[in-house]
C-alpha cells in the first residue's frame, strides 16, 4: 500500500546488553519491560516513528 521509502532504524531499546552490537544507531537500555515500552513510546513521539518488537525482546523504532 504505502510507497515504501527506505526505512531506517532510528533507535533501539533493549533490556539485554548482549543482544545488540553497538553500531550507528542510538541504543537505550531499560531496566524492565515497562520501562522499555515507556522509553520506546517516548522516543517514537518526537521521532514520529513506528515501534516494532523483535523476537529477542528488543524494540526498534523506525521512520
Amino acid at each position: 500500500m504505502d510507497k515504501s521509502p527506505i526505512k531506517q532504524i532510528l533507535a533501539i531499546v533493549t533490556l539485554d546488553e548482549d543482544v545488540v552490537v553497538k553500531g550507528g544507531v542510538p541504543i537505550f537500555f531499560a531496566r524492565d519491560i515497562d520501562e522499555q515500552e515507556k522509553i520506546a513510546s517516548d522516543l517514537a513521539k518526537p521521532l514520529r516513528g513506528n515501534i516494532y518488537a523483535l523476537v529477542n525482546g528488543v524494540i526498534i523504532i523506525t521512520n
Binding site: 515500552e37 520506546a40 513510546s41 513506528n50 516494532y52 518488537a53
Partner: peptide, 21 residues
C-alpha cells in the same frame, strides 16, 4: 502471535511493539 505480531486468521497484518497499542 509471538506476543507482538498481529494476525487475523493466518494472515500477518503488522508488528506492534507496544503493549498499550
Amino acid at each position: 502471535k509471538d506476543k507482538y505480531n498481529l494476525y487475523i486468521d493466518d494472515i500477518f497484518i503488522m508488528n506492534v511493539g507496544l503493549s498499550s497499542t
